[in-house]
């Protein structure tokens, strides 16, 4: 790899470059800190082994905690959207798919599971997988909030049929979001190639070498990144 990291003995010199702003990281961790307890207090209704926690007074506490944290979960993107509407819009644009995302998807299995380095098309600050995660988070947030608020305040006011739908939607959304979360957590914490991801989300910086390899379109700009990608492909095929 064309490393900026210089090897001096066994010590790597890593050049850190900024990747996420303070506010981006803050929002990420508020979302994490609300999502995990929301799932935990929701799962007591779902898993038989946790049933005792759903019953009686414990269950009422679970439902109260679920509501308290839901306020944070709902408020966080709303407050951000009100204070920084332009930035929120930029995020949504950053999460939008482009043509070359298909190339990433084609090679994702080979890269992330088998550990083959070749032929990953250059990515922006968010790669295709992160974009999918981002979009999924937006969609599941909307579904969670709409179905949750109707169940919270609409019981007896909306028709039973609508309420039943909302219960099912809330359940399906949880299942989808939890599966996304598990993959997201694994990639951030355990995947050996993604070592810089958690560093970036904690400290806001990433290694220049890592950025060049994983986020070339962002690091070099789209044009230069494509040139390098084509050159690498030519080299590999020789």
């Amino acid at each position: 790899m064309n490393g900026q990291g210089e090897e001096a003995g066994h010590i790597f010199q890593i050049r850190w470059i900024p990747k996420y702003t303070f506010v981006e990281r803050l929002l990420h961790w508020i979302h994490t800190a609300s999502f995990i307890p929301l799932v935990a207090t929701g799962l007591v209704l779902y898993l038989d082994t946790l049933k005792p926690l759903a019953q009686g007074d414990a269950g009422q506490w679970m439902r109260l905690v679920h509501r308290l944290i839901a306020v944070l979960f709902i408020a966080e993107p709303l407050v951000y959207g009100i204070l920084q509407p332009r930035r929120l819009w930029l995020h949504i644009k950053e999460f939008s798919f482009e043509k070359d995302d298909l190339g990433w998807l084609k090679n994702a299995f080979s890269y992330y599971v088998r550990g083959k380095h070749d032929a990953m098309p250059p990515q922006g600050r968010f790669n295709t997988g992160e974009k999918i995660n981002g979009m999924a988070m937006i969609v599941t947030w909307i579904l969670f909030v709409v179905s949750g608020l109707i169940m919270w305040f609409g019981k007896g006011l909306v028709s039973a049929e609508l309420f039943r739908w909302m219960v099912v939607v809330h359940d399906l959304t949880t299942i989808a979001a939890l599966c996304m979360f598990i993959v997201h957590f694994y990639l951030a914490v355990a995947h050996p190639l993604m070592w810089a991801a958690l560093v970036s989300m904690r400290f806001g910086v990433t290694s220049a070498t890592y950025a060049a390899e994983h986020h070339a379109k962002w690091y070099y700009g789209p044009k230069r990144a494509m040139e390098l990608y084509e050159a690498k492909k030519r080299n590999d095929s020789h």
Partner: peptide, 13 residues
């Protein structure tokens, strides 16, 4: 004593 007040019963009956 076991009821936690979720109210699903009232909506699914």
């Amino acid at each position: 004593d076991l009821c936690n007040g979720c109210g699903y019963c009232s909506q699914f009956c």
